[in-house]
Design a protein around this nucleic acid. Sequence first.
DNA 1: CCATTTACTTGACAACATGAAATATCCAGG
DNA 2: CCTGGATATTTCATGTTGTCAAGTAAATGG
Lengths: 140, 140
Amino acid sequence: MPSRRADPLTLEVVELIGSVVARYHEEYEDAAASHQLTGAQARVLTLLSLEPMPMRRIAQQLKCEPSNITGIVDRLESRGLVERRPDPADRRVKLAAPTQEGLQTADRLRESLDFAREPLAGLSAAERAVLRDLLKRMLG
Amino acid sequence: MPSRRADPLTLEVVELIGSVVARYHEEYEDAAASHQLTGAQARVLTLLSLEPMPMRRIAQQLKCEPSNITGIVDRLESRGLVERRPDPADRRVKLAAPTQEGLQTADRLRESLDFAREPLAGLSAAERAVLRDLLKRMLG
DNA sequence: CCATTTACTTGACAACATGAAATATCCAGG
DNA sequence: CCTGGATATTTCATGTTGTCAAGTAAATGG
């Protein structure tokens, strides 16, 4: 039910969220590029740095087709950042896992993601807590 | 200056912003797809629905190369959603403008962008105002 | 009036994304 | 045990987005 026209305040907040999204993306792509990674490659590498996982699960997390992941992991693998391991429990499955160098790259990537510190630095701890709670409720 | 490790609260907020960004994107792509548009096409059409503008300016707004815009506008034009007009003041310039049908599509697109209403509905007006102010300050 | 700059397009190329088909493996019911 | 159906991954064809370099047309300023 589309309710009726959203009120001006809601529209303003939506507009601001759009700006946050645009800025986040820009900074994410820049951070990735500074490590010669594309955004998609950076996302996959970051995911794997938390926990190795089957190709299929990567696709689920990124909400795309598994056949797409094949190519992205291929490129990461050809650069020595990721490797495919057999799953002892299921020979159909290939576990993608970061190499040592992949882990280091993921760490440096995390550090260069300044969207964290820079824009939030202007907010006090109390304000950040309020923001956290509001975002949490927004995300349901 | 990477300052030192960000505190847990900041990290939590950053994580939440990441979730908001992911969700916003997902919904945006879905809304675009429901009108047989790609995300990029939807962004350009939305931009033009506010105000016709030269190709060059579209590229600046989208932060990409002008040569990229040529293709996106080509596809929108071949579907009758956008047209190129000469700029009376400068014959090098082509103004991209939405057609009647393009305007209608842009309107319907806006309506289906429920990221506005749905998640924000859980917040009171006062809370939305607080959120607005915090986001504004975050964006500097 | 000529050199330079600007706006746009074109062409070559890479990454990303989807969908369909192929391969290998698992698994459950007979 | 065996077979038929489901599952995991890859390959291929195709389309969109993105970059960069080169080309054309038009403006602009010495």
